[in-house]
Amino acid sequence: MNKVNVLGVNFDNKTLNQFQNEFIGRLNEHKSTFIVTANPEIVMSANENPEFMKILTSDADYITADGIGVVKAAKMLKTPLPERVTGYDLFTWLMKVANERNLRVYLIGAKPAVIHAVQEKIARDYPEIQLVGAEDGYFKDDLDLVALRIERTQPDLVFAALGSPRQEKLLAILRKNLLPAVMMGVGGSFDVFSGVVKRAPKFYQEAHLEWFYRLVKNPWRFKRMLVLPKFVNDVRKSRKEQK
């Protein structure tokens, strides 16, 4: 089974290593590639937003299970996924690839201080990357104009940290324009990559409790977490309908 459907979103049934091999192949061939890393929040958002669901079902080339909730949901639906594949892990791996290959990278999103910190880290730790663009997410331009601005720099990799579905809307435009780059929405990855926000310690990652660590550190996220019980309930309903 190549795809696993969780509440209308088709996840690619691949391991991290399989994704990496495919993305290297597409980089080598300069194929326009749009990657979505989806957690339960994104799945629920897509179910409430037809335009967003259309992007996921029609425009995305790959959708990874970025969230243990998605992996558990797939298991509940008797169509298990092999493992969780996070956007952050893919992002940091692709940045290493970019450094090894002297690739052209465009970054867009996050706060001005964060994107500045990311630029400093790249200059220090990834000196072989050609950073052809780095802008914060507080632009007021139309997304089509932003897409044109990105296209002019001829990047090999584009990472958008604008939050969903805004980042996916921008990347879908680039994908429709057939930009020959690997493109991915990375949510809050710039914050962690820059060191402005600390990633959950290994214990929390391995216990699949990163969400709990983030909640403790940022209590304001509680409202966002309320979508999780609804996600579980909808998956249970979906399982009953299958029976």
Rank of each mutant, 00 (worst) to 15 (best):
V71L: 15
M225C: 11
S189G: 12
I173K: 05
N13W: 02
K75D: 04
K237I: 09
D61Q: 08
I108D: 11
M95Q: 04
A147Y: 09
L56F: 07
I35G: 00
N99L: 10
D136F: 01
G195E: 03
I108T: 13
V232E: 13
I115K: 05
A181T: 03
D144L: 04
T64R: 05
K198A: 15
I108S: 09
K54W: 02
I150E: 05
E210P: 12
F190Y: 14
Q242E: 15
Y106Q: 02
S32D: 13
E29Y: 06
M1V: 09
V216G: 04
V158K: 05
K240M: 13
T86R: 04
K169Y: 14
R124M: 11
L170M: 05
Y88I: 12
N49A: 02
K75Q: 10
G109L: 12
R104E: 09
D144C: 03
V105G: 06
R199N: 07
W220V: 10
I108Q: 13
F231Y: 13
L94N: 09
H30W: 00
V146P: 05
V85A: 04
I108N: 10
R101P: 07
Y106K: 00
I150S: 03
A74E: 01
I129P: 10
A73V: 01
V71C: 06
N10H: 14
L170T: 05
K243H: 12
V97F: 04
G137W: 01
G185D: 03
Y88C: 03
R175D: 03
A113E: 15
Y106S: 15
F11Y: 15
G187V: 02
L7M: 09
D136S: 14
F139N: 13
V43K: 07
N102L: 01
V146R: 09
L81D: 01
D12K: 05
G67M: 10
M53R: 14
K230T: 12
V158M: 10
K3E: 14
K237R: 14
I35R: 02
P180D: 14
L209N: 09
T153Y: 00
E241M: 14
L174M: 09
F231P: 03
M183L: 05
A147S: 10
S194I: 09
D142S: 14
T92M: 08
N102T: 13
V43G: 07
R175F: 00
N99E: 07
V114M: 05
V105F: 05
P180F: 13
R166T: 12
V235R: 08
N17Q: 15
F190K: 06
Y126N: 12
F139E: 08
L77E: 02
D66W: 11
Q130T: 13
L171C: 10
K72V: 08
D66M: 08
E128Y: 11
L171H: 07
M225E: 14
L215F: 14
V182S: 07
N28K: 15
G69S: 04
Q130G: 00
K78M: 02
